[in-house]
Each structure stands twice: as structure tokens, then as C-alpha cells.
Nucleic acid binder design. Structure first.
Length: 518
DNA sequence: AAAAAAT
């Protein structure tokens, strides 16, 4: 206990505030030391090489308590593993730690049931009768004991798309808040409005019997909200707060309606994006630091299906004394989602493929999401398809909140089968009926040389095949650059994406049968 | 040759 308190002190005046001062140097540090850190990372993440199915892949999760190492590294970075001999030792150590993960004196054992987590009867009832859960999924079994057991260690967790991450952190939040205390006690930060709404719905459902209430940034500015609207004047009395980073930050600083002094747990959903420099890093760090300053005793959870190498290193350095779980990138592209590429001779052929091949098949299958690169192409493609008599909708960040909500509501209800979207929907969106994902444009970086955005690719195709269901993804290619980028994607995940002829009447149908969808 | 949030 004394040890835990000591650690908290370090957290309060140590790592987080330091970042603000050294933000500029941070970049250089990543470049200069990433080589060493990568080496160590590779040996720590020892995962079986060939894996046959999903279960085995999930068995391959590596759980490591990095607390001591992190402190070592902070004190004397020169002790970072630098010889083969040491790497070997670290690998052996990592292997052992998979089976025996320690937080202080408490060994974590994987939770086979929800009962053994000491949850309140009300919360258990929500899990069983509302959520219809029977027992923890793999990632839940591995992380829940670490989340809900003192000393409430920080956690960085990577797990496959659709494997049940949301339940991990929602249950984590709900298990730690006191319903009798009418102050904010848990915050969940998400990258999009849609994800805020989706996560809030899960919290409300799971919390049904607990008396815990929620507030979210999504219904703050509109009158027709699902729960209740939060006026800017009122201090928030709900226990669980879900929101996008900008509004949360404003609530904490300018509006002063979000009191952070009783926050016990802070969750970042899609954490790699939330901590990425080209993402929400500034806002996220600010939120973390403000909470830390107001009471220095807050558990931080990071969840995502992807952690690119750079942001992973940043997370490990930023979140003090964290347990972590990582998955090799090669193990992330699930067999359950069949991936294909269709080479189109010209841009017009892409429309042709959509209308004559994908739409007829898709309408029989379930629901589909077509991803495009820009807002403009989303609305243009939408207009074009609609003009040709094809029923679909589109969503992108340029629409009003009301329009976005309406489009999502229509898609959720099944009224619309085909949704065109920018990357506003590439992450986290959970709709079981989505069986088909079409990359109308391949995700690429915004700056030359326009290399592929691997993480975005994985998140997009992960919109299908939710929770072990079957799914398929089609990549439409026109230019040589498209071809090169798809090849890079194949190399990156070590997969083979098979070719489908664009002008063959039966090819797509046949392929969908192979994918187990037709 | 970007998206997201928000100012």
C-alpha cells in the first residue's frame, strides 16, 4: 500500500507534466532512441509464430507487468537491452511473465467467470440479463482482473477488432464508481461523436440496475438526446462521463462543470489515435495532466486494436507503471474476414463494380460500408449512386450532428443497407450485420509519399466480422500506386489478398461463397 | 493528396 502511494506521487508530479515542457524534444527522442526501444519491444512481445485459428491467436496474447522496467528505464536509459545475451534473457523473462503477472504482491489470474471479479450483484445482473453475457471473452478474462483489482494498475491493452474491448473498460468504469456519490468518477475519451454515443449506450445498458448515471458530450448541445441533455451551466453530477476530447477539455477548464477531483479511472478508447501526434495527442495529454494534478490517484486504461510502433513507445513512456498486452501485427488480420482486391482499368470501372457486382450481392448479404478518402468523395459518390437509382446513405464530418445521427440511426435500424463513409466510421463502430467492407479508396497518409495507413486499413475491415462473425473486404484498385500500396499492406500484415476480376459476372458471387457469406 | 474535434 505504501508502495502504491509512493508510485502515485511519482505520477502526480512526474511523467505527465514533464511531457508538456518537453513536447518538442519528444519527437527527437523518438527518432534517436526508437532503435533501442524497438529491440527490447520485440523480445518482450514474444508470441508464437504460426497460429492456426482465432483462439490460438488470442492465446498468444502477451501479458507483462512493465512497472519495474519502466522505472529502471526512466532512471537510467542506458541500461536498455543492448546485447544479444541480454535480449535472450529478456525473452525468457517475458515468456515466464505470461503465466505469472504480478502487481505488487497480487498475482493476476485470468477470470473464467464474471463472478470471481467481486462485482456488485447489480452489475452482474446487468451483464447477464441486459448484455446477455455468459462468460468473459479472452481479452476480458485477461484484462478484467488487472482493471478491477487493487492497486488498480494502469493498463495498455491491444486486442483484435470485435473481440470485446468495450466491455473491458465499461465494466472497469462501472465496477469502480460509487452510485451514491453524485460526482464524476470515470471518464472515457473517444475519437468521434459516433463512438461516444455507442459507448454511452453500452454504459447505460450495463449500468441498468446499478443506479449509475452517465453524461456525454454528444447530447450536450442537442435537445433530442437519448438520455438527458447537459446544459453548460450545470455542474455534472453523473458518475460516468463519455466524450470527445475537445468538449471534455472545455468542460474541465473553461466551463468548469466537470469536476475531476473524484475521477478514479480514465479510459482512452482507440487509444493509439488518441495519443498519436497527428491525432488527439495534445488534448489527451491535457486531460490526463489536469486530472492528475487535481488528485494524482487515477487509473488510466488504453484500449485499441492497433498500436503502431511509434505511438506504442510513446504510450509506454507516457503511462507510468502500466501492465500491458500487445499482439503481433501479423496476428491481427483475422482469418474470419476474407480480403480481396479488384483491379479496375479506370476510375469509372470502380462505379461499375459497385453497381453491378457489389450492390446486387450486398443487398442479399446484410449491410455494407464503403470507405472513401475525403468528405467530398463521400458526398459525390453518394449523389452519383443515388442518381443511378441505388439506395444508399453517406456520412462524413462535414454533416451536421443531426444529419450524422439520422444516418447512423437509419443504418442501425437496418433501413439502409449500404453506407458510404469517410474514416469517421473506420474505428470502433459496432454493427453485427455489417458483412462487407469496401475500400473504394485505399487508406493512405496525407503527405508524400502517400504510403498506406496500415492501422486504418485494419480498423476499416474490422467493421465486418464482429465478434467472430464472418466478413469480407474488397479493395478497389486503379492506379499503380494503389497496387503498390496494397502490396505493402500485404507485406505489413504478412497476408495474401487474392485477386478478383472486375468484369466477371460470377467472380464476386463465387468469392463471397468462399468467404462463407453467400 | 485527409479525417476527426473544436476553436
Amino acid at each position: 500500500m505504501a508502495e502504491a502511494e509512493k508510485n502515485q506521487e511519482v505520477a502526480a508530479d512526474g511523467l505527465v507534466p514533464r511531457l508538456e515542457k518537453e513536447e518538442k524534444e519528444e519527437d527527437e527522442e523518438v527518432v534517436s532512441s526508437s532503435g533501442k526501444q524497438e529491440e527490447e519491444q520485440q523480445v518482450v512481445e514474444k508470441i508464437p509464430e504460426k497460429q492456426e485459428d482465432l483462439m490460438e491467436k488470442l492465446e498468444g496474447l502477451t501479458v507483462t507487468n512493465v512497472a519495474d522496467k519502466a522505472e529502471d528505464m526512466a532512471d537510467k536509459p542506458e541500461t536498455v537491452v543492448n546485447s544479444e545475451r541480454q535480449q535472450l534473457d529478456a525473452a525468457v523473462e517475458a515468456e515466464t511473465e505470461i503465466k505469472k503477472v504480478m502487481a505488487d504482491d497480487t498475482p493476476y489470474t485470468s477470470a473464467k467467470t464474471f463472478e470471481e471479479l467481486n462485482l456488485s450483484p447489480e452489475l452482474l445482473q446487468g451483464l447477464y440479463s441486459e448484455m446477455k453475457f455468459e462468460k468473459p471473452s479472452k481479452i476480458q478474462a485477461a484484462t478484467l482482473p488487472m482493471i478491477v483489482t487493487p492497486p488498480y494498475r494502469n493498463l495498455i491493452a491491444q486486442a483484435h477488432n470485435g473481440s470485446g474491448k468495450t466491455t473491458c473498460f465499461v465494466l472497469g468504469m462501472l465496477s469502480r464508481v460509487d452510485p451514491k456519490l453524485k460526482v464524476p468518477q470515470a471518464i472515457c475519451v473517444c475519437p468521434t461523436r459516433e463512438l461516444v454515443i455507442q459507448n454511452e449506450a453500452v454504459v447505460v445498458k450495463m449500468a441498468k440496475y446499478t443506479g449509475v448515471t452517465t453524461a456525454s458530450t454528444a447530447n450536450a448541445d442537442s435537445s433530442n438526446s437519448l438520455t438527458h441533455s447537459v446544459s453548460r451551466r450545470d455542474r455534472i453530477v453523473d458518475q460516468v462521463i463519455i466524450g470527445t476530447p475537445g468538449t471534455l477539455k472545455r468542460w474541465m477548464t473553461r466551463d468548469k462543470i466537470l469536476d475531476t477531483r473524484s475521477i478514479k479511472i480514465l479510459v482512452f478508447d482507440e487509444a493509439d489515435q488518441m495519443l498519436d501526434q497527428s491525432g488527439f495527442q495534445d488534448d489527451s495529454m491535457r486531460i490526463m495532466r489536469d486530472i492528475d494534478r487535481s488528485q494524482g490517484n487515477c487509473q488510466v486504461l488504453l484500449f485499441s486494436a492497433t498500436f503502431g510502433e511509434k505511438v506504442k513507445q510513446f504510450a509506454l513512456r507516457t503511462i507510468p507503471r502500466a501492465n500491458y498486452i500487445f499482439v503481433e501485427k501479423e496476428a491481427l488480420s483475422l482469418d474470419a474476414i476474407k480480403q480481396y482486391k479488384i483491379h479496375c482499368p479506370n476510375p469509372g470501372a470502380k462505379i461499375d463494380v459497385l453497381q453491378n457486382r457489389i450492390f446486387p450481392a450486398a443487398e442479399k448479404l446484410g449491410q455494407s460500408i464503403i470507405f472513401v478518402r475525403t468528405r467530398q468523395s463521400a458526398s459525390e459518390l453518394h449523389k452519383r449512386l443515388e442518381a443511378d437509382g441505388y439506395k444508399c446513405t453517406s456520412i462524413q464530418g462535414g454533416l451536421s450532428h443531426e444529419e450524422r445521427d439520422h444516418v447512423i440511426q437509419e443504418f442501425r435500424s437496418g433501413e439502409t443497407k449500404i453506407l458510404i463513409a469517410t474514416d469517421v466510421l473506420s474505428r470502433g463502430f459496432d454493427q453485427a450485420q455489417v458483412t462487407l467492407v469496401i475500400n473504394y479508396d485505399i487508406p493512405v497518409k496525407s503527405v508524400p509519399p502517400y504510403t498506406p495507413e496500415f492501422e486504418t486499413y485494419l480498423h476499416r475491415i474490422g467493421r465486418s466480422g464482429r465478434f467472430g462473425r464472418k466478413g469480407a473486404a474488397f479493395n478497389l484498385l486503379v492506379t499503380d500506386q494503389d497496387e503498390r500500396n496494397l502490396r505493402k499492406i500485404e507485406q505489413h500484415f504478412n497476408i495474401m489478398i487474392s485477386d478478383v476480376a472486375w468484369d466477371d459476372d460470377t467472380a464476386i458471387e463465387k468469392v463471397l461463397k468462399d468467404a462463407g457469406l453467400a
